[in-house]
Design a protein around this nucleic acid. Sequence first.
RNA 1: GGUUCCGUGGCCGAGUGGCUAGGCACUGGUCUGCAAAACCAGCUACAGCGGUUCGAAUCCGCUCGGAACCUCCA
Length: 493
Amino acid sequence: MDLLYKQYPVHIENSLLGKKELLIPVVEGRIGMYVCGPTVYSNVHLGNARTFTSFDFIFRYLSHLGYKVRYVRNITDAGHLENDGDEGEDKIAKKARLEELEPMEIVQRYTVDFHKIMQQLNALPPSIEPTATGHIVEQIEMTKTIIDRGWAYVSNGSVYFDVDTYNRDGGDYGILSGRKIDELQEGSRVLEGQEEKRNPSDFALWKKASPTHIMRWPSPWSVGFPGWHLECSAMSTKYLGEEFDIHGGGMDLKFPHHECEIAQNIATNSKKGAKYWLHANMLTLNGKRMSKSTGNTILPSELFNGDSPLLIKGFNPSVVRFFMMQAHYSSVLDFSNDALLAAEKGHQKLMSAWIKLKGLASSKESTWNLQAWLDKCYLSLSDNFNSPIFISHLFEAIKMINQSENQIPLVQSDLDLLTQKMDAFIFDILGLQVDEQGSSQSDALDKAMDLVISLRAKARENKDWKTADIIRDELAAAGIKLKDGANGTSYEF
RNA sequence: GGUUCCGUGGCCGAGUGGCUAGGCACUGGUCUGCAAAACCAGCUACAGCGGUUCGAAUCCGCUCGGAACCUCCA
């Protein structure tokens, strides 16, 4: 049998070219994917979580297709400047100073928070999760190489990438974002402390630390810290090679971060790193980008437990994930209570059908075209990871399942295949989870419920509606919903 | 000001030249002691104005509205 990725070749929208292309891995059967991770100086907000959930879904699908995927997602724990001038301060160091903590305490706290949230959202851990501080040596080496090749200069102990010279030598700074350097300089903000740079568009590879700066490492140029853009170049090269397949990140990193990464890669080894660039779009709240300064923000933990003035209730992480998956990763997704509520219902319908499917019997012949449906599902996923279309196909199957009384219009082998594929689609690829309580239902509980249901059935036989309704209402209050059907009563959480 | 992108039915959200996703909500019906669920049916839209075309939500132009980025951003 053909491998799935050969049967359903993946096409992805490459931000570098602005068009969809066939994914052809550098090494057949393997995918190297790098995603820019979070800067761990505060709790991840929901927008961050969306980006990582999007790439988790992509990782899951590529793996499902049979690719051997090495997924590298870094933790930025140093080198992320507040601004690029002399007053530039490392984000981690700033937070540490404000909270009077050791920088690595900040890093530890928010790394743990990040992992916890991503786990709740059922995101798989990446294959490698390297940290910037763990790769200072590599970053220094890369800086040396770029200086040696003539595209960086030392200024007062700091090292800057020389964008003008790089482009004059045939570099293509601006290729990703479509920006032209001349325009950039005209439009750029006036920043303090730019005098170390020859040119405003130059960016730091290494920054000399001020006497009070608390994160510092020795280097040939000064005691200091690496520039933000450099870590991703250094770590992606180290773990995925000079040429690898996919580089992902939030849309807001396209410029300057990813633009700088490409320039650094080419300046180091004449190769631009990733073949395909993917950008996950922003999550907006009330039509605006989330921002801590304006209060237009929500933390995943608040969303899960409902502890926010913006929410009427909490939502299960799997519902949140389903909500995100109903939009394409490359589209802006607007967040609202109503949208979440709708997603919750849809999620419930999906899970109910999944549970029903497992209890259905097969038929003597298949009158539902399983293969055609499978093709549609895979084609939608392979078409630039189109999760919304994919989910719409899922609901076609759900309709068929719900139309089935006790028998599904499929022979046993088809029923087995459908069950296996639904399992893979819902849980392995979309990464959804059945309600924890629902999945933990034990035999004992089943027996107890059977008893309660039969008692209620008796009451109903005797037209003792009062007793029947008390049982149903009390169970409902306890979170157990009874459903009277033609073939008896079932329950769910 | 520059770059990129978007404006789809009550809401969310796909589609990107013809065959008009899907979810949620709503209305009617089936089922049912009632309810819930499910099923059936209905509601059927593409910001506005022009243009190209046999045909445009989809391509082009303009107008209006919104978003992201332009060295903190996922």
